[in-house]
């Protein structure tokens, strides 16, 4: 997982790094890990991990597997698994995630939504014992 401890290692794994002096406009879709330290307007999507630096400003809907966000984001955020919001993160939009950690100082102006699929799978897990119990009752009869 793309965790906070290996922040310094992030550049080694990153397929794309957008530095602080770069402005990106358009639909920025990648396959590998992405690091954004600059500005981005449009949409941002990756099947892998995303790191958004302290000085970054993102005006876009975001989709990623795991993400660490330390900068400003104006848009919807959909993270498949783990999202970490740093103390300097400012989020203006709804956030969907499976797991989240929020540092003291982070600003969230939007809804926090736990991923639906996860809830569905949890429901299935809960329902399993009942089915098994029914089967046992039938067998006894």
């Amino acid at each position: 997982m793309f965790n906070k401890e290996n922040r310094t290692e992030k550049f080694k794994d990153a397929e794309t790094i957008i530095g602080g002096s770069i402005k990106v406009k358009g639909n920025f879709h990648g396959q590998g890990n992405i690091v954004i330290e600059g500005c981005l307007e449009g949409s941002l999507k990756t099947n892998a991990n995303l790191f958004i630096g302290e000085k970054a400003k993102i005006v876009a809907n975001i989709e990623a597997q795991d993400a660490i966000i330390n900068g400003e984001v104006y848009g919807q955020i959909k993270i498949k698994k783990y999202l970490s919001l740093g103390a300097s993160a400012k989020i203006f939009g709804d956030i969907q995630y499976e797991e989240i950690s929020v540092e003291k100082g982070a600003i969230i102006n939007g809804q926090l939504i736990v991923k639906q699929e996860n809830e569905a799978s949890k429901r299935k897990e809960h329902s399993k014992p009942e089915e098994e119990q029914e089967e046992l009752i039938e067998e006894k009869e």
């Binding site: 990153a14 397929e15 794309t16 790094i17 957008i18 530095g19 602080g20 002096s21 770069i22 330290e37 600059g38």
Partner: peptide, 13 residues
């Protein structure tokens, strides 16, 4: 590879 004067770096393939 983009390297600016203030040592900011960007990389894209």
């Amino acid at each position: 590879h983009i390297k600016t004067r203030d040592k900011e770096e960007s990389f894209i393939s």
